[in-house]
């Protein structure tokens, strides 16, 4: 074997070894990382039921802070209008998890402002109608979509009485790690589940509301701020007639 050939072989082995390290290292890293994050692999339980009380009296008309905060927290502001799209049509196609609504009472003319989002029903119609089970309710009351098995049929959007869901109508170039998003799937507010799973106890909309109109917490804990407030003030569930027992309640509407 000539020296030249030998050197070629040595070079090849070196490169192969380097290639192997580059290929395997991320996997090994990931493995060790996930090992550290062990508590998150434990299933959520029904000991907690996340919920919210929104005081419509405190919610200021024209204020959009909760919407902006949600957009930023969940990467909705990264969803760009596709080139060549019609602007007014795109406005009706772009995703929204929370929205500001102003109501007028038909009899008295009284105006009320409130934020509206997924109401995290105990009996969610979206999960009932979903053919694959992609729409589901976690044990802790959060209703969300498993984006791996959502086929994009939009039956959940037909069934939701709160119009709380959005379909991703276009390719999304940039997305946040904690809120993956793909064209052709349905999504909605998930109470900032990534925060809760990491031990935080607030949602982005709640943090952003300078009027303190949103109280979030554990409905099962009688000492939590939300439970105390619900005990103290009269509140209603929207579309209470449907008996869905939503986790989001409103007062003063």
């Amino acid at each position: 074997m000539s020296k030249l050939e030998q050197e070629g072989r040595r070079e090849f082995l070196k490169k192969a070894a380097a290639g192997t390290v580059v290929t395997l290292a991320p996997g090994v890293m990931l493995h060790s990382l996930s090992a550290e994050a062990a508590p998150r692999t434990e299933p959520v339980t029904g000991k907690v039921r996340w919920g919210m009380l929104i005081d419509a009296n405190k919610c200021a008309e024209g204020c959009n802070d909760c919407v902006a905060a949600c957009d930023k927290e969940n990467g909705l502001n990264l969803v760009d209008m596709p080139e060549g799209a019609d602007e007014s049509l795109w406005e009706r196609q772009r995703p929204r998890w929370i929205r500001q609504i102003t109501l007028k009472d038909n009899l008295t003319g009284r105006l009320t402002s409130l934020p509206m989002m997924c109401q995290h029903c105990e009996e969610p119609p979206c999960a009932d109608v979903c053919p694959t089970g992609a729409s589901f309710r976690r044990a802790d009351g959060i209703v969300m979509v498993d984006r791996h098995i959502c086929i994009g049929c939009r039956y959940c959007m037909m069934a939701c009485p709160y119009k709380a869901r959005s379909f991703i109508h276009a390719e999304v170039a940039e997305k946040l790690t904690h809120t993956p998003r793909g064209k052709g799937c349905v999504e909605s507010c998930n109470f900032c589940v990534h925060r809760l799973d990491n031990g935080q106890t607030t949602t982005a909309c709640q943090d952003a509301c300078k009027h303190q109109a949103i109280i979030f917490g554990d409905l099962n804990d009688p000492q939590s701020a939300v439970s105390q407030a619900l005990k103290k003030y009269p509140s209603v569930a929207i579309r209470d007639d449907l008996k869905l027992n939503p986790g989001v309640r409103y007062s003063n509407i």
């Binding site: 929204r96 609504i101 102003t102 109501l103 009472d105 509206m116």
Partner: peptide, 11 residues
């Protein structure tokens, strides 16, 4: 019983 007079999501 109420009319939506403004909405950020086409209600």
């Amino acid at each position: 019983g109420k009319t939506i007079v403004a909405s950020g999501f086409f209600d």
